[in-house]
């Protein structure tokens, strides 16, 4: 089998526990992301999601293991991997437009100022920011608008991989919905490869092609890879009526509520921990895939 576009191999992160020993956050995590795929990672706080994100971004070094993108090992941050941080991370002394231009200039040092401005304005318009608002400083923008700027900055750079670290975590539910729609729209236009951390199950189902489920730490691992068998284009009001929606949702809730605890705390003993693929599709005659013992319970819940 050929290597996926992004391949995470035996990634291990250990931190000193403050008592002279070490605490293993996760070990031998192994998974891949295909080109153009939108992957969400779900798990409880403290399972190391953000650490994985920082390693993928090149902002942190794993204790061991490698991340390869397009066949090259990832070391250090790069413009090929754009990041949208939870707290927006806009530079507060620059206007919204200048913040996007900051990224565009870094990506395209040879571009003229007019071209940089035009490109930046185009991407701000894509997330619904036009006119006067783009000349305001981040402090004068609402949380939702700031995150839009941050998303525009990331997309404007055409990174090979876009990393989103709980981008909507600090937003209210209504704003979150609107920006999720905008993210879907801009993503369907660009076919970026996206890797996103979230806490929100519904958000993950709406956005993702595949959801990676992490068990609780310490010794967390990516236990399952759930395919979202709901066709695109998706729409938040229509997907809930799709027969697969609640089947998938219940599976995820069950995992986070129960099995993330049951499966946690098992040392890997040096074996690569690849996630089990789960495919739930109620539209087919019989559910297939590696859900295994989960499926009977799921049917009981959904039927």
């Amino acid at each position: 089998m050929s290597k996926p576009f992004l391949s995470v191999e035996s990634l291990t992160q250990k931190f000193p526990d403050g008592k002279g020993g070490t605490m293993t956050v996760f070990e031998d995590a192994t998974f891949g992301v295909e080109k153009g795929e939108f992957v969400c990672i779900l798990g409880h706080s403290g399972c190391g999601k953000s650490t994985i994100m920082n390693i993928l971004a090149g902002l942190a070094e794993p204790t061991s293991g490698v991340v390869k993108m397009d066949g090259f090992e990832v070391s250090g941050p790069s413009l090929d991997r754009g990041v949208v941080f939870q707290n927006y991370s806009l530079l507060p002394w620059l206007s919204a437009l200048r913040n996007v231009m900051f990224g565009v200039k870094a990506r395209n040092p040879g571009w003229s100022r007019a071209k940089v401005t035009e490109h930046s304005e185009k991407y701000l318009a894509m997330v619904g920011l036009e006119g006067d608002a783009i000349h305001r400083k981040p402090a004068q923008l609402s949380g939702g608008m700031r995150q839009r700027v941050s998303i525009a900055r990331a997309f404007a750079n055409h990174p090979k991989l876009l990393l989103l670290d709980e981008p909507f975590g600090a937003l209210d539910a209504l704003t979150r919905g609107t920006i999720q729609d905008e993210l879907l729209k801009i993503w369907s236009g660009t076919q970026q490869t996206v890797f996103m951390i979230t806490h929100d199950i519904d958000e993950a189902i709406l956005l993702a092609d595949r959801i990676l489920l992490m068990t609780n730490g310490p010794h967390a691992r990516v236990a399952e890879s759930v395919e979202i068998t709901i066709p695109r284009p998706r729409n938040r009001t229509e997907i809930v009526e799709h027969p697969n929606y609640y089947a998938i949702r219940n599976h995820l809730v069950q995992f986070l509520g129960r099995r993330s605890k049951e499966l946690s705390g098992r040392p890997s003993n040096g074996e690569a921990q690849t996630p089990e693929t789960v495919r739930i599709d109620m539209t087919e005659s019989a559910p297939t895939g590696g859900g295994g013992e989960e499926n009977p319970r799921l049917r009981a819940v959904t039927n």
């Binding site: 971004a57 902002l59 250090g76 990041v83 707290n87 991370s89």
Partner: peptide
């Protein structure tokens, strides 16, 4: 550190980071 991380993910060199991120932030 978020702002420094922004500079890092945009592959800014040390001098450029100092002048475009750290200096305005600390000004």
């Amino acid at each position: 550190s978020d702002w420094v991380n922004v500079a890092r993910t945009h592959e800014l060199g040390a001098l450029k980071t100092a002048f475009t991120v750290i200096l305005p932030a600390a000004a």
